[in-house]
Design a protein around this nucleic acid. Structure first.
Lengths: 193, 193
DNA sequence: GGCCGTTCTTGTCATTTGACAAGCAATAGC
DNA sequence: GCTATTGCTTGTCAAATGACAAGAACGGCC
């Protein structure tokens, strides 16, 4: 695994040049996760700012009734971390799990902060990542409030079909905010078209 | 209106001393909004990083069906801004509206960036605000997926009863992700207890 | 090959919620 | 003071979704 994808990802936001990207990427260390392995577990403080190079992951939490609820999916080429635990140094309430064998590049909180301090351009990148995640979540929230489950499913199918290829449907169901039975019926209805 | 609340707010995160808070607060300008006035309108680029000193506000968006959907409420003592539009300098999809007469302190994007650049402690504050908003939204999303509307309503009643005193119920309803009729029924059921 | 656990689908029934319309109360504007 | 608007509640009916259980499909493992 080379750092090519990571460097490319750093540059793509526009704040970071190729030379800078190479230096910044130099601070990241490889990290491998077997299928079903955990990048983060509830109760622990997240210490990985993780760029997923290959594989597929999800984040989930247990609600008060003990249901496993998927909160996010991550495809290769995305940043994976739990905002609140990582930046506030507080115990996580979420798990982050490899759905397939995964490899990527990781940096610790201390090191990330050092980079933020030393490199204004990387700081801008960091803020852009926060904003991107925040804005994406707002979109999802709005859809959750205003769209029916069937519409949300079809939007997901269009926007991120790879999720359906890697994640079990019950995880997709909790991500969409419905039961696995309902999702099954939604799929049945939508395949008729 | 004095800058006392603003200074106190800046300090409360722990990154900023009293002396620094006074200097930073010096960069903010007063801003007044009459009831129903707009701090931000869809289509415009947000240029207010706004601390609400007195009053009550809400953010909302129109969904594809044209429904007015409340995405957030803001009580006095909170920061009010639309993340994506403000930081990405892109047109907003949301409106931010005064529900009562409001006053507060505002700073523009350029000035904020200048402060971030000049003051590492304020930068930390800024990141903490982003993380707080992001994490809060995640909690809300999880509740939206896993809790019934009646439970969400009662949680809101416990955590932010002031919302019910200032916002019309139809706004609360769309915030909770239900119709105004449903909320009315939920309230009826919940008052029986 | 055969067993077992997991995933997915399907059926049945109850509950929640939405859509729509009507009615009443409060409020603002004339 | 009167009217128009808005906000809130309620009734009725239909649609969406959940809860629960059973069974089919599939893969891993001995």
């Amino acid at each position: 695994m080379t750092k090519e994808k990571l460097q490319h990802f750093l540059q793509r936001t526009g704040f970071i040049t190729a030379a800078q990207a190479e230096e910044i990427a130099g601070q990241f260390r490889p990290r491998v996760l077997a299928r079903h392995g955990m990048l983060l577990e509830a109760g622990k403080v997240s210490d990985d700012y993780f760029f997923l190079d290959q594989g597929f992951m999800r984040a989930f939490a247990y609600d008060p009734q003990g249901n496993d609820t998927t909160t996010a999916f991550y495809a290769a080429g995305q940043l994976v971390f739990e905002v609140a635990s990582f930046f506030n140094r507080t115990p996580s309430r979420e798990y982050i799990q490899a759905l397939t064998d995964c490899q990527g590049w990781s940096i610790r909180y201390q090191e990330l902060n050092g980079l933020f301090h030393a490199r204004p351009e990387f700081r801008e990148f960091g803020r852009a990542m926060l904003v991107r995640g925040y804005a994406g979540l707002k979109d999802r929230m709005l859809a959750m409030i205003t769209e029916q489950a069937a519409v949300r499913y079809e939007a997901l199918l269009r926007a991120q079909p790879e999720i359906l290829q890697h994640a079990p449907l019950k995880n997709v169901a909790s991500y969409l905010g419905v039961t696995d039975s309902s999702l099954s019926r939604i799929r049945k209805g939508s395949s008729k078209k």
